[in-house]
Design a protein around this nucleic acid. Structure first.
Lengths: 199, 199
DNA sequence: GCGATTTCTTACCATACATCAATGCGGAGG
DNA sequence: CCTCCGCATTGATGTATGGTAAGAAATCGC
């Protein structure tokens, strides 16, 4: 399984000097997680951003009826933060949990903010991350408003063709907003229609 | 109907000097809109951010079956941008249209970016706007994944108690992701259960 | 390699919401 | 004041998806 280095991720995205990287690395801590371990639980305040170096992580909430709803998958090379919890210093509504054994870099949010103030290209990289998050969430809202379960599943496997090979179907169903049984039925109908996944 | 001045909005949110305000105002243009007029259409690239001074505006998409889906209501004092279109310079998937006669300030996105680079407090205000947008969208996704039509309607009128008085029910239904008929039935059932809106 | 979990499928029935069509209603304009 | 016209309601019926339960298949731990 391919591993991603955070510094590679950064230097390929922003124009940041060696000294700045040094400063940032002091604010980082790498942790190893077993499948099921939590990085954040509902009610906690999230003080870090996360960079997944290896393995996979999910962000989800649990509703009043005890059902889980998946907000985000994050595999190697993904950067994730809990925007509300970090920025507004609110207790989180979400859990962040390892779906596989994983190694994750914790980056102190305060350091990110400091570096953003000092380093314009870091700030604009930060802004870019926020914008792509908005874009993604907007697309998801529109899709939930307009598309059927089947359409959402097709869009999902088109966007992340490798994920169904790696995560349990029940997790994908939770992301799509349907039950695992319904997803199973959707897949059966697609098979009967001779649907072939784009290679 | 109360009117909001953009400068008041800015100075009450960020620490910005008189000269900076002057610069920004040169990049602004106020337009009057009749009900139904468009600020942006699908396929266009959005070069501005919008500040609603008077009236009300909606952002929505039209799906493959011709149905409208409402992403956002924006009344007086609301600031709205089309993140994807502006930031990634992509054609917009959304329409932005006046729901009532309105006056809207157009702010050139390039000027916002320039001011952000020069003026740290402007940059952090910008960042705050992005974060609250993420928070809002995240909440909406979670709600669409977990809550019934009735629950979503109750959450809606709790969050924006004044909107149902001002916009047609069909628009609210579109925001909630249900048909106008279903919303009518939801309201009927709430009335039969003797539901009273919180005052 | 084998039993034990976990995950996936299938069948049957229940429910929420959509669709279609008819009717009611209330405000804007002649 | 009356007539439209847009909007909301209601009823009958359709459909997508949910819930439950059972069994099949895959995966994991040893």
């Amino acid at each position: 399984m391919k591993e991603f280095e955070f510094t590679t991720f950064l230097t390929s995205n922003i124009d940041i000097g060696e000294d700045e990287l040094q400063k940032l690395s002091h604010a980082c801590r790498s942790v190893s997680l077993k499948k099921g371990d939590f990085l954040l639980r509902e009610g906690e305040t999230c003080k870090h951003a996360f960079f997944v170096e290896k393995g996979m992580v999910r962000e989800y909430s649990i509703d009043a009826k005890g059902r889980e709803h998946l907000l985000l998958f994050a595999a190697e090379g993904w950067f994730l933060t809990n925007a509300e919890s970090v920025y507004f210093d609110l207790p989180s509504d979400y859990f962040i949990q390892a779906m596989e054994d994983a190694r994750v870099l914790l980056i102190e949010q305060t350091s990110i903010n400091r570096l953003s103030e000092q380093h314009p290209s870091f700030a604009s990289f930060n802004t870019r991350l926020l914008h792509s998050r908005i874009l993604h969430l907007q697309t998801r809202v529109t899709q939930l408003l307009s598309a059927s379960a089947e359409e959402r599943y097709l869009a999902f496997i088109k966007a992340w063709p490798y994920l169904p090979l790696r995560v349990p179907q029940a997790q994908i169903a939770s992301y799509l907003g349907i039950t695992p049984e319904s997803l199973s039925r959707v897949r059966k109908e697609l098979a009967e229609k001779n649907y072939r996944p784009p290679k």
